[in-house]
Design a binder for these strands. Structure first.
Lengths: 388, 388
DNA sequence: TTGATAATTCAAATTGTTTGAGTTAATCAA
DNA sequence: TTGATTAACTCAAACAATTTGAATTATCAA
């Protein structure tokens, strides 16, 4: 894979690179599509698209899918992405474990694995990550030589922020250039981000938000994170720490949002009642039994969610807010069905195209899959250009 | 001015357009600069930059500024923007008045004017706007034929939102395509936005935030708005209504942020004390006398600001938050100097490059000048490309 | 069967950038 | 003062991409 660095000026070669990506994006979003249609969508000539498709086919990125007869004229040869044309590695580093997933270009998880982590110092983590990568390649030999890159998800905040130690930051990672370390260790292009951004990217690529270019993702991790995609691009902030919505104080007690709305919050609540449910399955089980403590927690969580929605909708005006992450489906559905949607919001429209809240991917691997999705997204979408 | 519509695919001609804009951006940010330096910054060859500069000079966009001898080698011919190379019209429509400003390419206001408005129906407003434009051209004949476009600022929210009538929306504008109306009426390319976005753009182009690519702008209008610039691009949201931070409830009373932090808020506060101060000058005067009601208001406003900062910093991770708008400088300075900056924020860094809060442009015309700045920004900056 | 329509290909033309050689004007060092 | 070095700039030719226009193919509709 040729990696072209960010350049401000354009020339023929950079145009071609851009057009290649744009063609891939068209094919991805359409599923299967012919050259002429791509050409129209991109304002290019069919000849140009033909040239690019020939190249992509030769590279094994596209598959020919026969001709589609649609009305008059020569039926168009259809193309679709070759799922085996490229692979992306997703890595999620948590304080107690490392997760890995290998996705094919269609976004399917071909292989997943986790290892427990005794300590989080970089050497330790990098060793595990390399081993996981090697194992994935062993399990999926077809991916050798076709790796598009690795997405890495780590607990933020990134960089030196003065609130180190207050959050969930990993010990030993405050002062290092994590991207460089992973790049060197894996020998792959690396994209680093937090769990919420990764999950949002996955939702954009393969999930509920495929047809939206501007949406928000409320990610339930240990705390509560916010992933923002605006005009197809992640909003990461100046230092990569945007989306820390969990820190925001909410009425009436001025508590932090994530004190009421996060996995740690449920677990603390259960603990106070001398109960325990560390896994998603256990939580689901309690919910299915209508456990009163779970229901009580969901009550306060619902109120908290309403505040979060108020903030996110009025600040971002998203098409929707997707809820996902390491929470049981049942919890997310309950929250969505019972929350009071604020009236005083720019998202309060008479006939919205999408519900204001939707449930996205959930489960333990959400962020890991999202990490890989960031790589796929990069490979399969055209750099945005001109908002003028 | 050739207007090139948004196209996803690239070709030689579109590359040239992009490179022209990129060259202009380099010249603008540098002030004066030589070709070779531009070429290095854009990863283009000096030959290419030479060609483009020849074209721009012929178009009257650039001025030659002699040679700069800097070390060895042939001294570079310096170029800078020709202030008279292009002009931008700024229009601000308020419920009771229309403001207009004509800026040259250097961002200087050459001409400003206002007319009172009896009613806000589109025909009425468009008539006034056309007249203001005609008058501006009469006053500044050099601008004829060199207009880059018109920026228009109107009270949001835009589109149908179900909270119509609750905000400050203009009567008669809910169901119309305002951009199309202004474009047709003025015969110029039009960019439409809200006051906060316009002010933020101005601050980015000519103000405190020139060297920042990601920052937030808290705009004091009648209410409180938030303008967001992320990686050099405005974050407008899916429907153009992002930034309505004034709606967000804050502790302890769950009141709206703008109930404590806006011009209407001061005025209501004064009214309750049987005082009145409708203009910025009158407010400044009261402040200078240490009026107790003003000081009391500033006290609650400071607390409210602290909450706003908490939300904005944690959600966006900006380089700074600029405070500006239709408020006296003294008020903004007082707020900045007395606010308690939240500890639990990703912006709480040990040695920040910029203060977390800064005062930007203030005064009655802030948004009007910002409206014109949106046009200058569009003409003088390269479309963003590749965040990969 | 025939004409219209639409996708595709081929070769030539076009646009804009890059390359490489040469010119100019400055600094630096002998 | 002179010559070597450095750097900006120009010119013309080469290059890399897209576009253009004509020809080919396959389907639909009358």
């Amino acid at each position: 894979m040729v990696v072209i660095p960010f350049q401000k000026g354009s020339n023929a070669e950079r145009s071609r690179f851009r057009n290649r990506q744009a063609v891939l994006e068209q094919v991805r979003t359409a599923g299967t599509i012919g050259r002429a249609e791509i050409a129209r969508a991109l304002s290019l000539t069919t000849q140009t698209v033909s040239n690019i498709i020939a190249e992509l086919s030769a590279d094994g990125m596209l598959l020919e899918k026969g001709r589609l007869t649609a009305g008059r004229g020569l039926p168009a040869i259809q193309y679709s992405l070759n799922p085996e044309g490229g692979y992306a590695l997703g890595i999620e580093v948590r304080p107690d474990a490392v997760f890995a997933a290998l996705l094919d270009m269609a976004g399917r998880a071909i292989h997943t694995e986790r290892v427990a982590l005794k300590e989080t110092h970089p050497d330790m983590v990098l060793g595990h990550v390399s081993a996981l990568y090697a194992k994935a390649l062993l399990k999926v030999p077809a991916a050798t030589g076709r790796m598009l890159g690795a997405g890495v998800v780590m607990p933020g905040p990134f960089g030196v922020t003065g609130i180190a130690g207050m959050g969930s930051d990993l010990i030993g990672w405050q002062e290092v250039d994590a991207t460089a370390l992973f790049t060197q260790s894996l020998g792959l292009p690396v994209v680093l981000s937090n769990d919420a951004n990764a999950a949002a990217t996955a939702e954009h690529l393969n999930g509920m938000a495929q047809d939206m270019s501007t949406f928000a993702y409320l990610y339930f991790g240990a705390g509560l994170g916010l992933g923002l995609i605006h005009k197809g691009q992640l909003v990461r902030g100046a230092f990569g720490n945007a989306g820390e919505i969990g820190h925001v104080p909410i009425p009436p007690q001025n508590q932090k949002l994530e004190d009421a709305l996060s996995r740690l919050s449920v677990q603390r609540h259960l603990q106070a009642a001398n109960k325990q449910a560390d896994s998603i399955d256990e939580l689901t089980h309690l919910f299915d039994q209508s456990d009163p403590d779970i229901l009580a927690w969901l009550g306060t969580a619902t109120t908290a969610l309403s505040h979060a929605v108020m903030i996110v909708e009025n600040l971002f005006d998203p098409e929707t807010i997707v809820l996902g992450g390491a929470m049981p489906d049942a919890f997310l559905d309950h929250l969505i069905n019972n929350v009071t949607l604020p009236d005083l919001s720019v998202s309060n429209r008479p006939s919205p195209r999408h519900p204001r809240l939707m449930r996205g991917t959930s489960g333990r691997m959400t962020a890991t899959l999202g990490a890989a999705a960031m790589i796929l997204n990069r490979a399969l979408s055209a750099p945005i250009s001109n908002t003028h």
